[in-house]
Simulated assay, not measured.
Amino acid sequence: MRAGRLVSLLLLLQTRGRMTARELADELEVSVRTVYRDVESLGSAGVPIYADRGPAGGYQLLDGYRTRLTGLTGDEAGTLFLAGMPGPAAELGLGSVLAAAELKLRASLPGELADRADRVRERFHLDAPGWFRGDEPTPYLSTVAEAVWSSRLLEVRYRRWKAPREVTRTLNPLGVVLKAGRWYLVASARERTTGYRVSNILEAEVLDAPAERPEGFDLAAFWQEWAERYERSVYRMTATVRMTEDALRLMAFVFPPEMSRTARDLAGEPGDDGWLCTTVPIESIKQGHVELLKLGADVEVLEPPELRERMAETARAMARTYLSTNATTASA
Rank of each mutant, 00 (worst) to 15 (best):
residue 150 S to D: 11
residue 174 L to Q: 09
residue 133 R to Q: 09
residue 113 L to E: 02
residue 66 R to M: 08
residue 171 L to Y: 02
residue 192 R to C: 12
residue 138 T to N: 11
residue 111 G to D: 12
residue 127 D to Q: 10
residue 165 R to I: 12
residue 189 A to R: 08
residue 186 V to W: 00
residue 166 E to Y: 09
residue 129 P to D: 03
residue 177 V to T: 13
residue 71 G to E: 09
residue 152 R to C: 07
residue 199 S to I: 10
residue 152 R to Y: 08
residue 164 P to V: 08
residue 192 R to L: 13
residue 119 R to W: 05
residue 99 A to Y: 01
residue 147 A to H: 02
residue 166 E to D: 15
residue 87 G to H: 06
residue 72 L to R: 09
residue 188 S to N: 10
residue 192 R to P: 03
residue 187 A to L: 04
residue 104 K to D: 15
residue 150 S to Y: 06
residue 105 L to E: 04
residue 97 V to A: 09
residue 175 G to M: 07
residue 140 Y to M: 14
residue 91 E to N: 08
residue 148 V to G: 02
residue 117 A to V: 01
residue 167 V to Q: 10
residue 98 L to C: 07
residue 64 G to A: 12
residue 113 L to Q: 06
residue 117 A to M: 04
residue 190 R to I: 05
residue 191 E to I: 09
residue 162 K to I: 12
residue 100 A to V: 11
residue 175 G to C: 14
residue 177 V to A: 10
residue 199 S to M: 13
residue 161 W to S: 15
residue 193 T to C: 08
residue 178 L to I: 09
residue 107 A to D: 12
residue 198 V to Q: 00
residue 90 A to P: 01
residue 86 P to S: 07
residue 78 G to A: 10
residue 160 R to T: 15
residue 72 L to Y: 05
residue 111 G to W: 01
residue 195 G to C: 11
residue 151 S to N: 13
residue 85 M to E: 03
residue 94 L to F: 03
residue 92 L to R: 00
residue 95 G to M: 04
residue 105 L to I: 15
residue 125 H to Y: 06
residue 98 L to W: 02
residue 67 T to M: 11
residue 87 G to W: 01
residue 100 A to P: 02
residue 158 Y to W: 05
residue 113 L to V: 07
residue 190 R to K: 09
residue 195 G to D: 09
residue 111 G to R: 12
residue 178 L to P: 00
residue 170 T to C: 11
residue 88 P to C: 03
residue 155 E to L: 07
residue 124 F to N: 06
residue 162 K to F: 05
residue 161 W to H: 15
residue 178 L to M: 07
residue 144 V to L: 04
residue 120 V to A: 01
residue 160 R to S: 15
residue 95 G to V: 05
residue 99 A to L: 08
residue 179 K to T: 13
residue 149 W to D: 10
residue 105 L to C: 13
residue 193 T to Q: 06
residue 102 E to F: 08
residue 97 V to P: 01
residue 191 E to D: 11
residue 173 P to S: 06
residue 111 G to A: 12
residue 157 R to W: 01
residue 103 L to E: 09
residue 195 G to H: 06
residue 183 W to E: 01
residue 85 M to R: 07
residue 68 R to I: 13
residue 79 T to G: 12
residue 108 S to I: 08
residue 186 V to D: 00
residue 163 A to N: 11
residue 87 G to Y: 01
residue 94 L to I: 03
residue 200 N to A: 15
residue 176 V to D: 02
residue 180 A to T: 15
residue 191 E to P: 03
residue 190 R to F: 06
residue 110 P to T: 14
residue 123 R to G: 04
residue 196 Y to T: 02
residue 172 N to A: 09
residue 189 A to Q: 06
residue 86 P to A: 08
residue 122 E to D: 05
residue 149 W to F: 10
residue 110 P to D: 15
residue 107 A to E: 12
residue 171 L to H: 04
residue 172 N to R: 04
residue 149 W to K: 14
residue 69 L to A: 14
residue 166 E to C: 13
residue 181 G to E: 00
residue 178 L to H: 03
residue 150 S to Q: 13
residue 103 L to T: 12
residue 124 F to K: 08
residue 174 L to K: 04
residue 183 W to M: 02
residue 121 R to A: 05
residue 125 H to Q: 13
residue 127 D to T: 14
residue 91 E to Y: 04
residue 87 G to T: 12
residue 75 D to W: 09
residue 86 P to R: 05
residue 197 R to C: 04
residue 138 T to G: 06
residue 101 A to L: 07
residue 71 G to W: 03
residue 178 L to N: 01
residue 106 R to A: 12
residue 198 V to H: 00
residue 178 L to D: 01
residue 196 Y to V: 02
residue 159 R to E: 10
residue 154 L to A: 04
